[in-house]
Design a protein around this nucleic acid. Structure first.
Lengths: 256, 256
DNA sequence: CGAATGCTTGACGGTACTCAAAGATTGTGG
DNA sequence: CCACAATCTTTGAGTACCGTCAAGCATTCG
């Protein structure tokens, strides 16, 4: 699938059998599902939602009544300390499943905010258990998604705990590029890069000023370019080596 | 259940119906299971294992052929960069389920190492899907466990990204104490604390020397004591406030 | 055109890292 | 049981990475 076909900020299909026409399912990034599974997913679905850039998708301190699959756009999960310091936990791309964590905790998990305009498929939290029961395979898939997300947070923890500023930036740029590539968001080597430097700083555990200086340094070295909100990786090997971060070819994942 | 009853480094029950006699299941920390579920868990179980303090439970770069529930002792998950820098991702206590992550990734997830002598119940990875299929409730429970672990890593990421040294130490001490308390490992206000300062440093993303200086400072302030490998929290409120970390009463979790 | 937001740079200071070496504790073998 | 090694803890000295403060510049938007 080429980028040209990719529905930037498009809404999920509506009507009788929306999941049949889901554009995401055509990507190699996602595992095929049986007709029966698709029917179960669709029954679990309660509609779609659109959230503007910069708005909250899930409030940090309230349990969200619904679960979501991100259909288009960029978002991020975050937590804040009581004095306002914010840490971005992970970035979210199309296909990511959100809101599950507070199924098992009494609120106080994390907030989710849209970076760009975003569209989501909404699912009924109450019927989650029903889903596991009706189609154990989908339960297995959800476990898979949660485990995958944990793996990403594990990586970020290594970054935050053990990498210096330049290594952190290198690792984040490669990480975001690879993930976007996987869901067809790369066009001629460029990805939409809607983040400001405060986002990067909050994700990497650095101050805004130091993030800026580090970004500029790597840019002057010719490792990457950012132009009008689009990112191009010029020296992937240099960045991978600097960040000691080598993303292995990603396996197809489930899509709920 | 009192500490006196707690099986330090005890092996899991053997024989015909080991899970019936599981000591962990008597703790309030864990949800009750139906007889049918218990039978399924027991059929999924393939034996037990004992690992010495300091030895590897799961190799960092090889996929473990089995899944485990930690039955007694302390362990930790970690990742290392290619130049040897190590980050501890989380600590593991009795009841924690390990080895699941690389079910969904091709190796390269994390290593697990025993801090004290440790005993484990081993499960067949191959039969995991069978378990989901036979008892969707247990699949749901496993998702719960993974989500709970992710929540802990999220917290650590906030710590590593946004807290200073004293705040990190405060948060870690409270976190470990509360978790140990939950599974009955506290005796008269003291918990076994088998970690050396290198463990703490690697968990917090600090250097060994700075970790030492910070620990000493909080100890001189009278916030905690460590004596012969046992920890006592003297000023829980001071530590909670310093770390901006208030563990809410933890709900009972599933136990596989 | 002014306000708001985001990027960039310089100056300065402090937290945390590295290096180094001396205690303290534990373990081991003769 | 003591001596010696190994491991861990503690402290000091010097440094550097990164944070804070401040201000100027660029871009977008109403």
């Amino acid at each position: 699938m080429k980028f040209e076909d990719y529905p930037v900020a498009a809404s999920p299909p509506q009507g009788m059998n929306p999941c049949d026409q889901c554009v995401l399912r055509r990507l190699d990034a996602f595992l095929p599902v049986s007709g029966e599974e698709l029917a179960t997913i669709q029954a679990f679905r309660v509609g779609s939602r659109r959230v503007e850039a910069g708005s909250s998708i899930i409030d940090e301190h309230r349990r969200s009544p619904q679960l979501f699959t991100l259909y288009s756009g960029w978002a991020f999960r975050y937590k804040t300390l009581s004095d306002g310091r914010r840490q971005i936990l992970s970035f979210l791309l199309p296909g990511d499943f959100l809101g599950l964590q507070d199924e098992f905790a009494d609120g106080h998990t994390h907030g989710v905010e849209a970076v760009t305009d975003v569209t989501l498929c909404a699912f009924s939290r109450e019927r989650l258990w029903e889903l596991f029961h009706a189609q154990p395979k989908l339960g297995y898939d959800i476990t898979w998604l949660v485990a995958g997300e944990e793996k990403m947070v594990d990586d970020s923890l290594v970054t935050s705990g053990r990498r210096n500023a330049a290594e952190r930036v290198a690792m984040l740029l490669m990480h975001l590029y690879r993930r976007a590539e996987r869901v067809g968001m790369v066009r001629d080597g460029w990805v939409e890069f809607p983040f400001n430097q405060q986002h990067i700083a909050d994700a990497l555990g650095l101050s805004l000023v130091h993030t800026n200086k580090t970004l500029r340094r790597l840019q002057r070295l010719g490792f990457y370019k950012i132009d009008a909100g689009w990112l191009r990786i010029m020296e992937p090997h240099a960045l991978e080596k600097l960040g000691d971060y080598f993303e292995r070819p990603m396996r197809p994942t489930p899509l709920i």
